[in-house]
Design a protein around this nucleic acid. Structure first.
Lengths: 341, 341
DNA sequence: TTGAAAGCGCTAACAC
DNA sequence: GTGTTAGCGCTTTCAA
């Protein structure tokens, strides 16, 4: 076990005071060239590494950003975390990763833990923003940025996409292909985005096109391939004549695709499917999935950038950012066979 | 901006010394019930939260584990990180996430950064273990655990699976199905696992079955769906009569599957495909991929558990652990049409 | 059982 | 330009 070498050792070895060492370390004040040289040499010889913990204690700054996600093994979140990680690293911040399984209890624990660990800021993601969250963020003024969620009336920035309009566009795309019986598969209603926003976009598009909304054509369940599969099955059991389905995310959409295929229907000839997110696998599965592309990596990157600006006391141009989305036409969607009446 | 409340404030408010507060906080020494009560109350009233940074400085313990991965957006690594995160959290450790893109430079930077941040230990993953890594780990005695890689002659524990035998079994499975012309698609040779171990298992299985190894049937490239697709294409251009292919991981296998399908062959009737890893999407794509299942989550969990034992000074039962793997038969593999001679 | 004081490794006034 | 010193918020001797 080597003994840790500290700033004192470097000071002693180079025959200067610790403040001088600190100065060359941080370039915080001028130091004469010869002394700087001596110090640098001593650092090299001793293999000195500054203790960032100690520095953090006096500077009240850890250069650590906490990131709270429901499920890091979910392609959506891992891509997003990658974005935050890269940007953070660029600005000399590290990422403390917290996985919550979407459980409120864990989320609250992590929120508290992160503040105790003195992280400089928090990037927060949850599927279900509750009163308890709101209260916490009101009581604890930790610099934070939200992703995909938003607390009304608080100045916590957030980054997302316009889920309502994106869902509207996706549905409308199917309508323009001539589809009328368009099923909807979504997340639980407790989920503001996957349960509500996208559902509303779907309904509005139907409405604007003069198509009656029919509750029998929608299935809502927890998010997952299997639920997507089952939801599709439930609908197909009763409504064999649907010609299209819009799923609130790719995971559910892929489940739906598998179900449709397993039942012997052809995609897109018999049934068109449109997903949401454009996770990497959307383009890989066959048939490749038509979907709404979210700039997932960018969302993470922008969230990190906004947080860092906040940490630097810079003014944010906008408190909330909606990044552009895009409809990606691939192989699961086609014109409806029967003409629209 | 609220002013941070410190242990001093709590002490003042409850009319005791900071040492007493510290004692009730940590249960480190007996404190009389009345005083304990007073202190607890003061803590509640002030909303005091211990500063873990300061505690870490004196205890020389941050309860943070650094984890270094090539690509967090890769399903394999994100699942693995999930395993470490969960176990770490159970034992009161947090995860500092470092994404390297497999670049040596970034890996070294992170290694240094993590030690400066005083993490208690490091879980290290790389695709290509170099001399520089070895040197670093020799010079810095940071408690670490390796995943899937191993430094010969050092007592750094690692956890993995037996890649050689798993690849052997996968290949042998195809042989037993009657296949003889079995192509191999793998990672770069610089990659100890995806380039070497699995390749050798493949060759040995061929050898043991009396099948001549043919270099023309192997393609090696960087890891990715696209490379898998292209590698498969290259082979198919020349050798239209192969009846099976073993890919060194699922990503490449999925690329290969898509290529085979795009060229109008049927899977598994014309060509069987076996992958490696059993990433979540292996069971989702159609046809579902036959593959070797690695207990990915468990690998991460075990790595974390081992590291934490090390941090506690507990003796490890084994310095290196190979977790069990399993061949999962799904829909991309079937008996060869022509009988083996 | 409690308090005073030293010190973890560092930065930043403040003096010189 | 350089050194001395007072903390940052906490734990832990050491005395009382």
């Amino acid at each position: 076990m080597k003994i840790k070498v500290t700033i004192k050792d470097v000071a002693k070895r180079s025959g200067v005071s610790i403040s001088t060492v600190s100065r060359v370390l941080n370039n915080s004040k001028p130091v004469s060239p010869e002394i700087r040289q001596r110090v640098l040499e001593a650092i090299r010889e001793t293999g000195y590494r500054p203790n960032l913990l100690a520095r953090g204690l006096v500077l009240r700054k850890t250069n650590i950003i906490g990131i709270i996600v429901p499920d890091i093994s979910n392609a959506y979140y891992s891509e997003l975390v990658k974005g935050t990680e890269e940007i953070s690293n660029m600005y000399n911040y590290s990422i403390l990763l917290c996985n919550t399984y979407g459980e409120l209890k864990k989320e609250m624990e992590y929120l508290n833990l992160l503040t105790e660990k003195q992280v400089d800021g928090i990037i927060f993601m949850t599927t279900n923003l509750t009163e308890e969250h709101v209260r916490w963020f009101k009581e604890n003024d930790v610099k934070s940025v939200f992703v995909n969620r938003h607390i009304e009336g608080m100045d916590i920035p957030y980054v997302s996409i316009d889920n309502y309009n994106a869902a509207y566009d996706a549905t409308n795309y199917l309508i323009e292909l001539g589809h009328e019986k368009i099923a909807y598969i979504g997340g639980p209603l407790s989920d503001e985005i996957l349960g509500m926003k996208r559902f509303e976009g779907y309904k509005q598009a139907l409405y604007d096109a003069g198509i009656d909304f029919r509750q029998e054509l929608v299935r809502v369940s927890k998010i997952g391939i299997k639920s997507g599969y089952e939801a599709m099955g439930d609908i197909l059991d009763v409504h064999k004549d649907i010609t299209a389905v819009f799923a609130a995310n790719d995971i559910m959409a892929i489940g739906a695709v598998n179900c449709i295929l397993d039942r012997g229907y052809k995609i897109p000839q018999d049934i068109s499917v449109v997903g949401f997110d454009d996770i990497p696998f959307a383009s890989i599965i066959r048939p490749a999935l038509t979907t709404i592309r979210q700039p997932i990596y960018d969302i993470g990157a922008v969230a990190a950038r906004m947080l860092i600006k906040k940490l630097n006391g810079e003014k944010l141009d906008e408190i909330s950012v909606n990044l552009p989305y895009q409809l990606i036409e691939r192989d699961t969607s086609a014109k409806a066979k029967k003409r629209r009446k």
